[in-house]
């Protein structure tokens, strides 16, 4: 190797170029895989079905036990939510008030599962 020159270096350079290109490709692919992951996780993590279910449960409760309600059933919902769904749930029903000509129960619903917090006041 008496007289090394650098004539061949461009081949290594091309190899490097392809390598860098591959890395960028990988980066993009990883990102797109993450998109799918985050949408699915977002859907799974946001407790849409839990909240919808809780709302119908509360409305059912009001249907069956109009104001002042049955504190035992209310405690059931609160206790089971905490135990099985790791979510802090509270709701209260007030006496009927007049809203646009109709007598409705004001209901406040509070839901918190550590990630998502949901508060609602609804007239039912």
């Amino acid at each position: 190797m008496a007289y090394m020159n650098e004539d061949g270096q461009w081949i290594v350079l091309m190899g490097l170029l392809v390598a860098v290109g591959l890395f960028f490709l990988a980066l993009i692919i990883n990102q797109s895989a993450l998109v799918g992951q985050t949408t699915a996780e977002g859907v799974l993590e946001f407790p849409k079905n839990d909240i919808q279910d809780l709302r119908t449960a509360v409305f059912d409760y009001v249907d069956q036990f109009p104001y002042p309600g049955d504190p035992r059933v209310q405690e059931d919902i609160i206790a089971i939510s905490l135990e099985r769904k790791n979510s802090l749930v509270d709701f209260s029903v007030g006496p009927k008030v007049q809203v646009s000509g109709r007598d409705l129960y004001p209901i406040t619903i509070h839901y918190y599962n550590g990630v998502t917090k949901y508060d609602e006041t609804v007239y039912y």
Partner: peptide, 20 residues
């Protein structure tokens, strides 16, 4: 010896790409 350098560099480039 000058010729061998092209071969070696080809091998080096190939290894880099395959490894990546």
């Amino acid at each position: 010896d000058r010729g061998q350098l092209y071969t070696m560099e080809g091998v080096a480039a190939g290894i880099i790409m395959l490894l990546t």
